[in-house]
Design a protein around this nucleic acid. Structure first.
Lengths: 242, 242
DNA sequence: ATGCTATTTATTGTATACAGTAATTCCATC
DNA sequence: GATGGAATTACTGTATACAATAAATAGCAT
């Protein structure tokens, strides 16, 4: 009753509906990228609808968008859950980043100006600060934001969008295969990179980005963990030994 | 082959709903890529729902997916229409193809085998045949399919998906900026490319692909046409002559 | 006749109701 | 006590109804 009335009261909302949807999308997306929603976590439509105060219709739309970006997996009659990337997907994503992000460095080096460099330095600064003050979730997202902003500076919106998706998925990959406490990006790498770019040295920036991404990929422990199967295999060992 | 047979054989009446959605998505997507639905064409939800015999709910889902792939644009209260790419988007798309597809050639050259090469040759053959028999729509799609299949052979599913999206958008770009009767890909380019790949010459294939894509991009006439403005300018000419 | 306003119409946006399916629990049986 | 099966439950899939808005049209005034 009071729910219905409240819903009616805050229901004039002409254009707010759209912005609200976008805000909810961002909220869920950020939660996933920041690893506050961990891979495998179920995302029930009812629950999300209750939390955000819209109907399941709107939630489904958002969930589908996230599914197309491969942040959530939508299994036919089982609903949505945060995707748990496979080792193969992880390899693909980092290979793709290697190809695209490195390939963009020369363009970025050409187009970067003083104000853009300053903006990037500010982002790198915030990232380091978040890391120092233990705000790991924020640091993860800021690191991804840095890479995305970099790609945007290339001037190619299409490739920038690809990089955005790859970075989001990378957060998921780090959540599953990364060592605890070790984030993807070393603190000073980003600053060094800005230096090369600002100097207009695209090739050097490209090589540096390549090493940077290789280092992240190398830091992952590429073992896929089964869910409840490990226990079962232990049982099997006991039986086969007899 | 085995896929098609399997698809035909399994007829559990319940699951058809899903496959039906996929089929409808394919139908609309193909119609756009094959330029039977031209840029700017409106896609009313009711009309599509009637044609395919499902409710608007399902249509909306499909429309949103197409919007995320940038094949249709979804303007807030005006509905869906086939997107009309801007000149800038066209440049971005072909630059992206240059970076990604060329970058994949060495990998493809490494992984390609006799059967894959034969499959590609068959596709190139069908494409030529469609072109000869005047089936332009089919030829356009087959050409895109060739590029996509090539990317899939790299083994990187993520990048292959990107290429798929870029090729779809390229069809749209050709529809708007391409010269009449001149399709993107020259008939023998694809065969030559297969030759280099089968010989394991990744670098040569890469260079060839680069020229191939540059040739397509160069064949476009990059003038953006306003909608109803041309008529207006004609009127202006008549008036100014008096 | 033209321009402005009001009404109607066409079309999308959102919620909700209902149906169908997988998961769970409980009971009976071995 | 465990296992198989039936009833219940919880959740998603789909359609439909209703609300809201922009486009189209008609009517009115100047």
């Amino acid at each position: 009753m009071s729910d219905a009335q409240a819903a009616l009261n805050r229901r004039p909302a002409e254009k707010e509906g759209e912005e609200r949807h976008e805000a909810i999308y961002r909220a869920v997306s950020d939660a996933i990228v920041e690893q506050r929603l961990k891979p495998g976590a179920r995302l029930r439509e009812d629950a999300l609808a209750d939390v955000f105060g819209i109907s399941r219709t709107g939630i489904r739309k958002i969930l589908q968008r996230l599914a197309l970006e491969q942040l959530v997996t939508l299994t036919p009659r089982r609903g949505a859950s945060v995707t748990r990337p496979t080792a193969e997907e992880a390899k693909d994503v980092f290979d793709a980043r290697q190809l695209i992000e490195c390939g963009l460095m020369p363009d970025v080096a050409c187009r970067i100006g003083a104000s853009e460099a300053a903006e990037l330095r500010e982002m790198a600064h915030q990232e380091r600060q978040a890391l120092r003050s233990g705000k790991q979730s924020m640091a993860i997202r800021l690191s991804a934001d840095f890479h995305v902003r970099l790609a945007q500076l290339s001037g190619n919106a299409t490739l920038a969008e690809f990089v955005e998706r790859l970075c989001s998925r990378s957060s998921l990959i780090l959540a599953v295969y990364g060592h605890r406490g070790h984030l993807g990006c070393e603190s000073h790498d980003h600053d060094d990179l800005i230096g090369y770019l600002e100097a207009g040295n695209g090739e050097r920036a490209k090589a540096f980005m390549s090493r940077h991404l290789k280092a992240i990929a190398a830091s992952l422990s590429m073992v896929e963990e089964g869910e409840a199967l490990p226990d079962l295999s232990q049982v099997f060992r006991n039986y086969t030994s007899q």
